[in-house]
Every structure is written in structure tokens, then in C-alpha cells.
Simulated assay, not measured.
Amino acid sequence: MLDSLAFSPVGWLMIVLGIALAYVVFGIAGFGTALVAAPVLLHFMPLSTIIPLLVLLDFIAASGSWLPARKAVARGELRWLLPGMAVGCTLGVAFLLSLKSDLLLLAMGVFVTAYAVYSLAVRARPRTLVQAWAIPTGMIGGLFGALFGSGGFLYALYLNARLDSTAQARATQSALITCSTLVRLTLFLIAGVYADLSMLVLAACLVPAMAVGLWIGRHLTLNMSREAFVRLVTWLVLASGIALLLRYLMT
């Protein structure tokens, strides 16, 4: 199993840089690791390996972000989002391990890109969402998170439309992603995905790159206003949608 770690020096460099850049984005926005890292990692391993690998790293990253800021978590929002997210994660893991998901990938890319373009172009839009949107947001975010490792953008959009405090939105999102990754970790473990020792060794090798990326991302947003932060998240959502469409075209 460890033979799968026999990447060339250039391959290792690309993988490490891809992970570091992915976690710079995660440190800024709290999502996006798979959308950034997957186009690089797909040259070296299949998507069914990439997603469980990133789930391991995301769990470490999100836990480290959530625990120091746990008092700022909006627990009421979590209670609404978590049930749908658990259902979506379960369905997504089942699809990832058994079905081709090209059409869902295309639909997700179109939706994300269209929404981001609309959000950037139309300034006069509702300031808040009603809490009932938590149910579809949780389910679709969980589904996309399990399938593509990229459901966090939906949580970010929902929480930034519900909460006035950037710190509260980020802490709640980190707690939500920690719960999401824990659910996916458990499902992948039950499915026997982590029986491959090489994946665990590779994840351990990539933790330093993840930590450096997180540190850079967090320091880039220390003095950012809520408006600038929300707009930056929207631009990252747009980049995520374009990356999904490119991934679909390359498959």
C-alpha cells in the first residue's frame, strides 16, 4: 500500500504546494480546500482518494479554528443546520463510493458560479435569510461536502446572511465544518476507506504544509472589515464555481 506514496520529487513539491495554497484559502474563508487542491492532486490520485484525504486534514484544521473561538459559535444556527448536513453527508458518501457524479459536478459548478456573479453584480439584495433556509443549506452542503469536499461555501453564504458578526460567522462555520468532517470521517471509516495505511501516512506528511497555509490565511484577514470579508468570500465562491466547471470539462 505504501507504494502509492512513491511520487517523484516534482510530484511531492506540487502536492505540498497545492495543499499549502488550499489551506491559505481555508484560513481566509473557512472552505475551499478541495476546490483548490483537487485540480493538482487529480494528477496523482483519484477523486475517491482525494476527498477522504482532505477530510482528515480539514478535520484538524477546522478543530484548530473552532476550539479557540467556541464561545462565539451561534449554537442556534448549528441546531438548524446539523440534521440536514448529516443526511446530506450520508447520501454524498454513498454516491462517492458507488456512482459517477459528473452531472452533479456540472450542476454544482453552474449554480455556484451563477450565484456568485449575482451576488457581486446586485448590491441591493436582502440583508438576511429566514432560518428555514438552514434545512436545504445543510443538506446540499453536506451532499456536496461528501462528494467533492466543497460544501463549505454554502455554509459561508448562509451564515454571512444570518449573522452580523464576522467573528461569530467564522466561529460557527468552523464548528459546522468540524461536525461535517467528523460525520464524513466516521462514514469513510465504516466503509473501510482508511484501511489504506498509505493514505494516513500521506495525510501526516501533509500536516506541516496545511499548518503553514492556515497561518498565512488567518493573518491575511486579521484587520479585514465584515463587508470586505463577505465580498472576498463571494469572490472565492466564484473561483470555486469556475474550478468546478473546469474540473467537469477535464473529466
Rank of each mutant, 00 (worst) to 15 (best):
V237R: 06
A156V: 14
R123P: 01
Y248W: 15
G145D: 10
A29K: 00
A121M: 13
G18N: 05
S165C: 03
L42P: 10
A37P: 04
L17N: 00
T234N: 11
S65M: 15
R162F: 00
A124E: 14
M199Y: 00
A124N: 12
L143S: 07
G109T: 10
M108I: 03
L220W: 06
T251F: 08
D164R: 11
L99S: 11
L245C: 04
I51D: 12
A121K: 11
D58M: 05
L187R: 07
L187Q: 13
S119K: 13
T186N: 04
G18E: 04
S48F: 09
A6L: 12
M250C: 02
V73P: 11
W80P: 00
L103T: 08
S4R: 08
G27W: 11
N223I: 00
F229Y: 15
L120A: 10
S119N: 13
T113L: 06
L189T: 14
G213L: 05
F59W: 09
R218E: 14
V183S: 08
L120D: 11
W215H: 14
G18D: 05
A134Q: 12
Y155D: 09
F188Y: 15
I177Y: 09
G18P: 06
A239K: 05
F26Y: 15
Q131N: 09
A86F: 11
A191V: 03
A69Y: 02
G138K: 05
Y23W: 06
A94F: 12
A6V: 04
F148D: 05
L244Q: 10
I15N: 04
I28G: 07
D164L: 09
S8E: 00
L17K: 02
G76Q: 12
V87P: 13
L5H: 03
L54S: 03
S165L: 04
I15Y: 01
F153I: 09
L54V: 03
L246Y: 13
A169S: 13
A86R: 05
R127G: 14
I242W: 03
V193L: 01
R170H: 06
K100S: 15
F229C: 09
L54D: 06
L197W: 13
G109C: 07
A116T: 08
T166F: 02
T221V: 15
L81P: 10
F229H: 15
R75N: 08
F44G: 11
V10L: 15
G92I: 01
G217W: 06
W215R: 15
F44W: 10
H43Y: 05
Y118H: 13
A161W: 07
Q168K: 11
A86L: 14
R123N: 09
S101A: 08
G30K: 07
T234F: 04
P208I: 01
L147P: 00
A29Y: 01
A38F: 07
G109Q: 04
S8R: 00
A203I: 08
G84P: 13
G213Y: 07
H43V: 00
I51M: 12
T181C: 13
V93A: 06
L147Q: 03
T186A: 12
L67F: 14
S150L: 15
A243T: 08
M224A: 06
A204E: 00
L244C: 01
L200K: 02
L42V: 13
L185V: 02
M14C: 15
D3Q: 12
L53W: 03
G64F: 06
L232R: 09
D102R: 10
L54Q: 02
I15L: 11
D58C: 07
V110F: 02
I135G: 00
V237K: 04
